[in-house]
Amino acid sequence: MKKGIIGIIDYGGGNIGSVRNSLKYLGYKSQVVKNSEHMEKVDKLIIPGVGEFSSAVGEIKKIGIFDAIGDWIDDGNPFLGICLGYQMLFEKSEESPGTMGLGIIEGEVKRFRKGKVPHIGWNWVEASSNSLIESGYYYFVNSYYPEPSNGNYTIGTTENAGTVFASAIEFDNAIGVQFHPEKSGMLGLRFLKRWLEC
């Protein structure tokens, strides 16, 4: 096992198993995070996610880590948000009007208005050259996509049926990806490995 314990936030809805499996495969030890005390024992933090915006935010509030996640990122600790875990970094989502997200990044999560919804399958991520992500096909499952107010944090873009969206962002030590690296074959595992190693 390699150095460092990776915390995976379990808020009930998201299937955390596949993220755990990928970390194990890469030789890392993970710890399920279900409260703020658990957060003190980990070196890096992942919020995986499938599910619905407001219920995920609600669960995270219920287990008392909503503010702690904000502090974790503000303090510059390594953080990775996947899919819904990425969308939660934004202020709000069309999926759940009236529910505030973490608001770490300015912007809104919007619903695809063109093409098949959900957007399921392998789509191209055009990554900026100095990022942890390499350009290539990654696996997506989403009906909503984030639209940051400020494009400076975007490190990957993807086009779906005419809509170009920020499929990856980097903000201090926080990274958010709309695709599922844990389900994107070797390319996804390579990204996870680079994030785990840095």
């Binding site: 596949s18 499996n21 990928s22 495969y25 696996y139 499952v141 844990e182 389900k183 994107s184």
Partner: peptide, 8 residues
């Protein structure tokens, strides 16, 4: 399969 194959 889930522990060893990383596609959906």
């Amino acid at each position: 399969v889930a522990e060893n194959v990383f596609i959906p």
